[in-house]
Amino acid sequence: LEKASALFSSRGANLQSYIYGTSALANGQRTDKGGGTRSLDADDSDDDLFKVRSSASAERPAHDLDAEDAVDTAVISMADLDLDRWQADGAMEALRDRFVTGDWEAAERRAAAGPDQE
């Protein structure tokens, strides 16, 4: 479940500032964290120049929001999700109210609920 929550952006009230805190446009500073040896500084050593990412880490996964070269896809990879948890007892039952076989009043309450007030 931890994996899944890292994938999706649901940070409570500050979600808006989280989304718009980073601009899509390129600016002076680099945001590619985790890229290891990145720097645009003038003191780029020759060693840095010839360093390449190993091919395994070259394609950054799509869910890495900081990666400039993240794979362009709308699909969330199954490998990033913990699908086995649905086999646990009661995992599916907890979802019952989202189906027509569940409690219609609970679904109505969910539908009627507006966004949280600040």
Partner: peptide, 28 residues
């Protein structure tokens, strides 16, 4: 919950069209 692709889309439509969404989460 917004997928990474959706978050990037939000950032890009702001950059291109100047459209900023109002994002209001509902915790329950």
């Amino acid at each position: 919950p917004l997928a990474p692709h959706a978050v990037r889309t939000l950032r890009h439509v702001k950059a291109f069209f100047g459209v900023t969404f109002s994002v209001k989460p509902q915790a329950a």
